[in-house]
Amino acid sequence: MEYIYTAMLLHTTGQEISEENVKKVLEAAGAEVDEARVKALIAALEDVDIEEAMEKTAVAAAAPVAAAAAPA
């Protein structure tokens, strides 16, 4: 999850989620940086409203039964 935390951290401090910034933070946190995962992170976040995605419960989607609770 270190890549996600890094993205969330940069998002919160208002910095761009760029390759350079992600790497800088990961290195500061003592992580071994995997270039491919950095690129994948940035690609995945490109079209995502981070603020919204963070608050949208993903887990409900994974639990259809929970969804069933709302019979509507």
Binding site: M1, I4, V48, M54, E55, A58
Partner: peptide
């Protein structure tokens, strides 16, 4: 939770998010 939500929503694969 936010990290899980974001990784599932943005489809970022890691150990925690991939099963979800």
């Amino acid at each position: 939770t936010q990290a899980l939500n974001l990784s599932v929503e943005a489809v970022i694969f890691n150990k925690e998010s991939t099963p979800l």
